[in-house]
C-alpha cells in the first residue's frame, strides 16, 4: 500500500527557520508539499481552480502559523490538517457539504469489488461523480488514513456520519463502476 503523498519528513532546522518567517525555508516547504496539498484539494473539491486557491491559502497559513506548530505531530500531518480544513471550509461556503441522507440501496456484495476490475480513468470518473461530502470521507479514510474520529472532527460531524458516508461512498462507487461506467463526468483530468 502506497503511503499518503504528505509523508515527507521536514528538517527541524527548516521548521525553525519557517517559524522565524524565513522565506527560503518557506519555499523549501512549499516545494516539498506543493503536490500533496494540491492533489488533496483537487480530490476533495473536484475543481482545479479552487484547488489552486486552497494550495495558496493553506501554504500561506502554514507560513504565518508556523510558530504555532509545537512538534507534537509530524509537520506533514499538521500541514495536511491545514489543507484539509481549508478545502472543507470552501465546500461549506459553497454549501456543498450538506447533510446528505444515507440512502439504503441494494448492492450485490457477492460480486468482486468493481474497483478491482475497473481501469483508472473509470475510477476517476466514478470518484468525481460522488457528492463532495461522500468523496471527502472516502478519500480521507482510504488514502490519507484518517480514522472516523479524525474525519468527524474535520467535518464537524459525528463518527456515525463518517461511517455512513464511507459505506455510502463505497456502495455508490461499486454501482457507478458496475452499472454506468461511462455515465459520470470527469471533473479531474489526471495528469502525469
Amino acid at each position: 500500500m502506497e503511503p499518503s503523498l504528505f509523508r515527507h519528513e521536514v528538517d527541524p532546522a527548516v521548521i525553525d527557520a519557517l517559524r522565524r518567517g524565513d522565506l527560503a525555508a518557506f519555499e523549501r516547504v512549499y516545494r516539498l508539499f506543493e503536490r500533496p496539498v494540491y492533489a488533496l484539494a483537487c480530490r476533495l473539491l473536484g475543481d482545479r481552480d479552487a484547488a489552486h486557491e486552497v494550495l495558496q491559502d493553506a501554504m500561506l497559513k502554514a507560513y504565518e502559523r508556523a510558530a504555532q506548530y509545537r512538534g507534537e505531530a509530524p509537520f506533514w500531518a499538521w500541514l495536511r490538517q491545514l489543507a484539509t480544513n481549508e478545502a472543507l471550509m470552501r465546500l461549506r461556503r459553497a454549501r456543498r457539504f450538506g447533510a446528505e441522507p444515507l440512502e439504503i440501496e441494494p448492492a450485490d456484495e457477492d460480486a468482486p469489488p468493481a474497483w478491482m476490475l475497473a481501469d483508472r480513468s473509470a475510477l476517476e470518473r466514478a470518484l468525481a461523480a460522488l457528492p463532495p461530502a461522500t468523496r471527502t470521507v472516502l478519500w480521507l479514510y482510504h488514502v490519507e488514513g484518517l480514522t472516523h474520529v479524525e474525519i468527524a472532527a474535520h467535518c464537524e460531524r459525528t463518527v456515525s456520519y463518517s461511517k455512513s458516508q464511507l459505506a455510502r461512498g463505497t456502495r455508490r462507487l461499486r454501482e457507478l463502476l458496475t452499472d454506468h461506467p461511462e455515465a459520470s463526468p470527469c471533473l479531474i483530468a489526471p495528469t502525469a
Binding site: E2, Y38, A39, E124, T191
Partner: peptide, 9 residues
Amino acid sequence: LRALPAPTP
C-alpha cells in the same frame, strides 16, 4: 484510490 495519478498544479 492511492494508485490514481496525483493531480499536479
